[in-house]
């Protein structure tokens, strides 16, 4: 593993493109296929690639376990929070029209984007957390 120069160089080259592609998939979801789930999985896969090539410790240095766990819970909380904000402002749960924006179409877009960001964070965090759990188990035995 230590001698695989090609693997290491290619992984380093690929990682930024993978993450940028993930964000592209996320923010371009309105007009092309994509969305929070796909983007989260792509970004998570980039981190997993890094962890496979360079070892779990290096990956944990870049994306610490605490950050990953925060991502999962904060993503879920954002989704729940958007729903509750709509509720408090007089609409139904997850009613984006109730958001305090004049143009109803823009309020819908804002709502969709907020929710998708929540999904993105939750999925990225979950994928990386699950991989860390399995990989860490393999090391401790």
């Amino acid at each position: 593993m230590r001698l695989d120069v090609i693997l290491r160089v290619i992984a380093k080259l690929l990682l930024p493109f993978t993450v940028v592609f993930g964000f592209y998939v996320h923010f371009h979801a309105e007009t092309s296929p994509g969305g929070g789930f796909q983007a989260g999985v792509v970004i998570g896969a980039g981190v997993i690639l890094y962890a496979i090539i360079f070892g779990l410790d290096e990956a944990i240095k870049i994306v610490p376990v605490r950050v990953v766990e925060l991502l999962v819970s904060v993503g879920t909380l954002i989704f729940l929070g958007v729903g509750i904000v709509g509720w408090l402002l007089g609409g139904n749960y997850l009613d984006y029209y109730a958001l305090p924006i004049a143009d109803p179409i823009i309020s819908q877009e804002v709502g969709i984007h907020l929710v998708e960001i929540g999904v993105l964070m939750a999925v990225t965090g979950a994928v990386i957390a699950i991989f860390y759990a399995f990989a860490g188990r393999g090391r401790s035995r």
């Binding site: 309105e30 007009t31 092309s32 994509g34 969305g35 819908q108 969709i112």
Partner: peptide, 8 residues
């Protein structure tokens, strides 16, 4: 909603 991708 103004979003052309209906799935989203």
């Amino acid at each position: 909603t103004g979003v052309p991708n209906v799935v989203a």
